[in-house]
């Protein structure tokens, strides 16, 4: 058990490293968005906030980010569950157990370039299709990069997060004693389908729920991948904010800060809602 002195040092470090920078950034952004500070700001104004709150770009960016995040998570979870349940033995004892860590070494930017090389109109899949005679011209190949549905972004996000969830589910399979639960359910008369839907999936997903929510938020806020593979409209929220803050029009900067605060407040509201629905939700020891 930590001594009171060590506890105080830990608290100080937490405040100094985490709380102070984050709160300082939020305060700076709030002051800038309200016209209190900033090179072109002359008076206190809620104009930036009104433009963001009642305008379309912020909400369409939030909607697009949520769509990309939910679809990427759904595909990743489905693939990760399938692999971790079906190939449990290979993950535990075989080469796959080591190889699965390999994709985690790739940074998002590298994976985005890989996706670009694979899925663009002049990419590998397109050329393969052309040489196989499936398409008559490379230009006929569907737009999977810089497209309206964010297919390239989703593909890359899935590549980035699926290995992580395979490792997570594979470890949970062992630590949560899933094999014993499956055997128990068998002796109660459960079919393989019932074991999957009533035992294996609920236990794994419940245990991983906090991580799933956090990754959903993480993908919503991803920057490099949508910057490289997304298009100007619709944009994901991080790209939209950075463009407002770093664009040549300095008058847009307050809007960028207002968007970032509003985005943080939305995410915080969801986290607080989850917390009040179940106060044990973010405790790792709770079932």
């Amino acid at each position: 058990m930590p001594t009171p002195k060590l506890k105080n040092v830990s608290r100080f470090l937490f405040v100094a490293i985490v709380t102070v920078p984050v709160v300082s950034g939020m305060v700076y952004a709030a002051l800038y968005s309200l016209g209190i500070i900033g090179i072109l700001n002359t008076e206190i104004s809620s104009k930036a906030w009104q433009t963001v709150f009642f305008g379309k770009p912020f909400w369409s960016a939030i909607g697009f980010s949520l769509y990309i995040s939910v679809v990427s998570m759904a595909i990743s979870l489905a693939v990760a569950l399938l692999i971790s349940i079906k190939w449990q033995k290979n993950l535990r004892d075989g080469l796959l157990g080591t190889a699965i860590y390999f994709p985690l070494c790739f940074p998002g930017t590298v994976m985005a370039f890989f996706s670009f090389q694979m899925l663009s109109k002049s990419g590998f899949v397109s050329r393969l299709g052309f040489n196989m005679g499936w398409i008559e011209d490379l230009r006929v190949f569907p737009s999977w990069i810089h497209d309206a549905y964010g297919i390239g972004i989703i593909f890359t996000s899935v590549l980035l997060i699926t290995p992580f969830f395979i490792i997570l589910f594979s470890n949970l399979f062992k630590t949560e004693n899933i094999a014993s639960f499956q055997h128990l359910a068998k002796t109660f008369g459960a079919s393989n389908r019932q074991i999957l839907w009533k035992v294996t999936l609920p236990i794994l997903l419940k245990r991983a729920s906090v991580t799933i929510y956090l990754f959903t938020i993480f993908i919503m806020g991803s920057y490099e991948v949508p910057l490289l593979l997304g298009r100007q409209d619709p944009q994901m929220i991080s790209v939209a904010i950075i463009q407002k803050i770093q664009r040549f029009n300095l008058n847009d900067i307050p809007q960028g800060y207002a968007m970032s605060i509003l985005y943080v407040l939305l995410i915080l509201s969801v986290v607080i809602l989850l917390f009040f629905r179940n106060k044990n939700f973010f405790k790792t020891s709770a079932v």
Partner: peptide, 16 residues
């Protein structure tokens, strides 16, 4: 599944 024999482990193994 078809034996109608229930096997109980040392742990209660209540579904979490």
């Amino acid at each position: 599944q078809r034996r109608n024999i229930v096997y109980l482990y040392q742990e209660a193994l209540l579904f979490p």
